[in-house]
Amino acid sequence: MHRLYVLPTLLINVVIIAIPALLTVMLAFFEWDGISDPIFVGLDNFRALWGDSVFWRALGNNVIWTIIFLIVPIAMGLLAATMMLVARRSANFFQVIYFLPVIIATAITGRVWQGMIYSPVTGITGLVQRLGIDLANPLTETSSALYGIAVVDLWHWWGFLCVIFFAALRQVRAEQIEAARVEGATFLQTIRYVLLPGIMPTITLMMIMTVIWSFLVFDFVYILTQGGPAYSSEVLSTFAYRSAFYDLAVGKAAAISVVISLFGLAATVLYIRVQAKEFDQ
């Protein structure tokens, strides 16, 4: 009887995600413009990607993105979260403010940074230029476009990690911390030897999620640069999106999607193992 209860969820999920996902894997071996009949081409799509410099650029950018996001927002989140333990009464106030960027739509955050900060006409960059300081719009330089986007995503994202780490830190047992303090541990030693080990499972989970999310990053790249200038900020997801909808090379897009999924797969296996543990209790 209870099998019927899970039917709506399962039906929606299978029709929207599972079946199209399987079709994507199949389409990766076909040439298809989205309208006419697909033509089987074997591994041609993957071979074409192998020789495509834009593909390698996008893949490299995803790897750079992963490294940045494994370090900067996690460090910022941990720093602020441990400090919020000291701030005590004002901690909730800081937490609410830090979380604000998380709840603002990516399209809006992207445009505020683009127009009010990066723009040489209407933004802070322009203001600084008029003061005589040589400062370029990071989004229009091939050398800095990716980092310009990453800064926006960092601003949007780090508060989420901070709030999660803060919640985890508050669950560290008070006796452990007191014991450390009685034995004369300094603030930094307490963090290093008691607090960080205490929330290690949470940090690990967030790092796994960071790897998964970093290969999915789409919104800010698409909104701020569309992968430009000259593909310098292209990532795999925008590359796939453009291939499918602008070039109507759906087979190629599917092949890129398969690559994205393969990179996420290892992290996904880890994620499921970590998450599934609590279901066995």
Partner: peptide, 9 residues
């Protein structure tokens, strides 16, 4: 699952 994995079909 990445959205791109099911978006195009």
């Amino acid at each position: 699952a990445p959205i791109q994995l099911f978006l195009f079909p």
